[in-house]
Every structure is written in C-alpha cells, then in structure tokens.
C-alpha cells in the first residue's frame, strides 16, 4: 500500500490517470507486474487487474447491498454473455467475505440509496475488490466523512492489504486517516516527489511542512 499526498494541483489525480490509461505519458513507464502498460487503453488496463474508485459515487442506489456486490462478482461469468450468467451462481463464501469486509453483512437486503454515506463508500470499495483487481486505486476515499466513518474505512483498507493481499494506492488529504493506514507515504509538489517515508518522518519533514500541510486533528 502506498499513500500519495500533496497540495491541490500537484499531479496526484494525473498520476492515477496515467496508471489507468486515461492519459499516455510523455515519457517513462508504468510497470504492472513487471510489464510496461503505459499508453494502453483504460479498458485493457482494467482487465489486467486494475480497479479505480472515482470521486463520483459508484454504487447502484436503487438496488440492494447484496445486488450491488453481485454485479461485479459475476463479471467474470458475464464475460461469456447473458446465457452463462443465467446458470451462474456466485461463490457464497466469497460473497459473505465481501459483505463482512465492508461491514454490511446485516444489511444485505437494504436498498443502497438508504444507507449512510460512509457505508456507501465502504460498499464501493468492496465492489472494487469483488472485481478481483490486484491493484486498487482510491481517490480521496474519505471525502466528506466523519471521524468514526474514516476509521472504519481505514480498517477496511488495511484488511484489503493484510487479508486479501491487494495492492493499494491511496490519494488523500486527511492526515488523521493517513496515519491510520500505517503505510509508506509519498508527498508530491508540482509534479515531483519531495518526501518519502512513514507518517512520523514525513510529517516532520521541513519541505513538506513548508509546501503543504494537510488537516491535522
């Protein structure tokens, strides 16, 4: 897991865009599992196992929690068309684990439009995991959340790394959240990395303090 911090406009989202194929870089490489994927189309990069959470909410508000999970879960079978979907049964163990992961096991039948904002975010992350992506990119996953919801998301993301073995890139502003992630941090300013290391080192780095200091709680 790697966290990316930096003031607005330093290039964090652009970095994500290059990784997922929205932009082709002018130079340099993007190595996914040893293979350079820079410049490939987003669809192809996505199928190589990259999933991205955008800032626009990515859940289906009119469907239930369980249905939301099922759609990305069945995407593997879905690749073979509607008939294969008809006979397909998603692995219940995997489904239950995903529901546990986002803490919504007891709300499987609830309509997503009616659950809390933080729960929707966690559901969306679980849906990304359901897609079986190896690399997950999260763009400000705690935007607009309370302290308690933030901790729940941090715990979820740590579990993704520790229990599910996923690789995760996180863009964030909330320093409290970043500290809870317990991962290496990279700080960008105007397109360049100015500091690297763990939270304790980075938060005391004079260059970081000088150019950018996120919210401190």
């Amino acid at each position: 897991m790697q966290c990316i911090l930096g003031p607005n406009g330093c290039g964090k989202t652009t970095l994500f865009n290059v990784v997922t194929g929205e932009f082709a870089p002018d130079g340099g490489e993007v190595r996914l599992g040893g293979r350079n994927v820079a410049g490939l189309s987003p669809y192809r990069i996505s199928r190589l196992g990259v999933a991205r959470k955008f800032q626009v909410p990515g859940v289906y508000p009119e469907l239930s929690v369980a249905e939301n999970i099922e759609i990305p879960l069945a995407a593997g079978a879905g690749r073979y068309g509607p008939l294969s979907l008809l006979g397909y049964r998603p692995d219940p163990v995997r489904r239950d684990r995903l529901l546990d992961l986002c803490g919504l096991a007891g709300k499987a039948g609830d309509k997503v439009g009616e659950i809390a904002h933080g729960e929707k975010q966690r559901l969306e992350i679980a849906m990304l995991v359901a897609r079986d992506a190896e690399l997950i990119l999260l763009d400000e996953p705690t935007a607009g959340m309370s302290g308690a919801e933030t901790s729940a998301v941090a715990s979820l993301i740590r579990r993704l790394r520790d229990e599910e073995g996923k690789s995760i890139l996180v863009i964030e502003h909330d320093m409290n959240f970043v500290r809870q992630l317990e991962c290496p941090i990279v700080v960008m300013v105007r397109g360049k990395i100015v500091a690297e290391g763990r939270y304790e080192e980075v938060s005391r780095d004079p260059r970081v303090i000088e150019s950018y200091l996120g919210k401190r709680h």
Binding site: R47, P61, E67, E70, I71, A74, A75, L85, L86, G87
Partner: peptide, 21 residues
C-alpha cells in the same frame, strides 16, 4: 438469476455496468 441482477444494474445505471466489464 444473476442475469436479472445485471439487467437491474443496466436499468439503474448503464454506464457503471459497462465499466464492470
């Protein structure tokens, strides 16, 4: 069936379902 779920997803938000592959 899961096909029904996917159809419901298409009904609710076609683009998102497209992005799931």
């Amino acid at each position: 069936s899961p096909l029904g779920t996917v159809l419901a997803g298409i009904r609710n938000d076609e683009r998102r379902t497209l992005h799931f592959g």
